[in-house]
Simulated scan of single mutants.
Amino acid sequence: MSRRQMEITPELMLRAYRIGLFPMAESREARTLYWLDPEQRGVIPLDGFHIPRRLARRMRQAPYRITANQAFARVIDECAAPRPSSPDSWINEEIRGLFVALYEQGHAHSIEAWQGEALVGGLYGVALGGAFFGESMFSRADDASKISLVNLVARLRIGGFTLLDAQFQTSHLAQFGTQEVPRAYYKRLLSEAVEMPAYFPTDLAEGVLEAEIAKLRQLDQTGSESRP
C-alpha cells in the first residue's frame, strides 16, 4: 500500500486498474488516497458462481426491479453512506468524483435494485476489456445487494467478460463461490482479461437476462467448476 504522490485522474485510474492497483481512502473525510495491491485477491467465478437456494427462491418472487446505469451517482452515495455495521467509509469526495467521471466516460457501471420508486440496493464497478472490478455494494432491503450481484454476473457473462474482481474475500462474498488467488496468478488473469473484447449490456431484449440467470442456476446445480 503506497501513499499517493501525484494527482489521480480518471486516466491514471484506468492505467492503475490495468496493472492490478486500485485506490482507497482511509476514511470519508480523508484527503489522502492509497494504491492497494493485495497479496491475495478475491475473484468471483463467472463460470462457477453459486446462488444459494434461499436466494434463488427469493429471486423467483421478483421482489425488486433491477436496472443498469440508471442511478450511478446515487448508488455510490449509498455505498458511502453510514450504516450500523460500518459508520465510516473508504469512499471520500475525491473517490466519488473519480468514479462519477469514469461513469460519464463509459468505463464505470452500476446495477440498481428498486422497490417502487425507492432505490433499495445496488453496486458499482469499473470495466476494462473483459475485466470488471467490483468496488462496493449496498442494501436497504432484504437481499437487494445479493440480487444485484446475481444480475451483474449474468450481464457480464452475456457481455463476454472473463474476470470479476472482488478485491478482497469476505464472508458475504464467500457464499457465492468467491475464491482467493495469489497476486501473481491474479495478474496473469488480469493481463488476459483486459485484452478481451467485451461490452457491458444495459438494455437487453425481454427474456435474455432471465435466461442467463436460469443458466447460472443450472450450472450451479450441475456442479460446474470455476477456473479463476
Rank of each mutant, 00 (worst) to 15 (best):
Q218T: 05
R58E: 10
G42T: 07
L189D: 02
F168N: 09
A166W: 00
L164W: 04
D37F: 15
T170C: 01
D47C: 00
A214N: 06
R3P: 06
E212D: 04
H172A: 06
S148K: 01
G129D: 12
A166Y: 02
I8G: 04
I19K: 12
V150N: 03
F72N: 08
P197H: 14
L21N: 02
H107P: 01
L156M: 00
L204C: 13
S2H: 15
G106W: 04
R83S: 11
Y34S: 03
S145L: 02
F22D: 03
A30R: 05
L55Q: 05
Y34P: 01
P38M: 04
M6Q: 15
R96H: 12
G97L: 06
Q179E: 15
E112I: 07
L36Q: 14
F72L: 08
M137E: 00
Q175G: 07
L123E: 05
G160F: 05
L189R: 02
Q115H: 13
L152Y: 09
G177W: 02
S86F: 14
S224I: 04
F22H: 05
S224A: 12
G97V: 08
M59W: 11
S86T: 14
L152C: 15
P82N: 14
Q70F: 11
A56E: 11
V126S: 13
G97A: 15
R57E: 15
G121K: 03
F200S: 04
V120I: 02
H172Q: 04
G122R: 15
A193V: 06
M59F: 13
T170E: 01
S27T: 07
L173S: 12
Y17M: 03
V120G: 11
I51G: 07
N151I: 06
A154R: 02
D220M: 13
E78C: 11
G20V: 03
V100D: 05
L216M: 10
A113V: 03
G121D: 07
E29C: 06
D88R: 08
Y103R: 14
Q179L: 14
G134N: 09
K215Y: 05
Y185R: 15
I8P: 06
V208K: 12
D165S: 06
A80E: 08
D77T: 08
E11D: 01
F49I: 00
E210Y: 07
G48H: 07
G207Q: 07
L128S: 13
L173I: 11
Y34T: 00
M137V: 01
S86H: 13
R60A: 09
L164V: 12
A198D: 05
Y185V: 14
P63C: 07
L102N: 00
A193S: 09
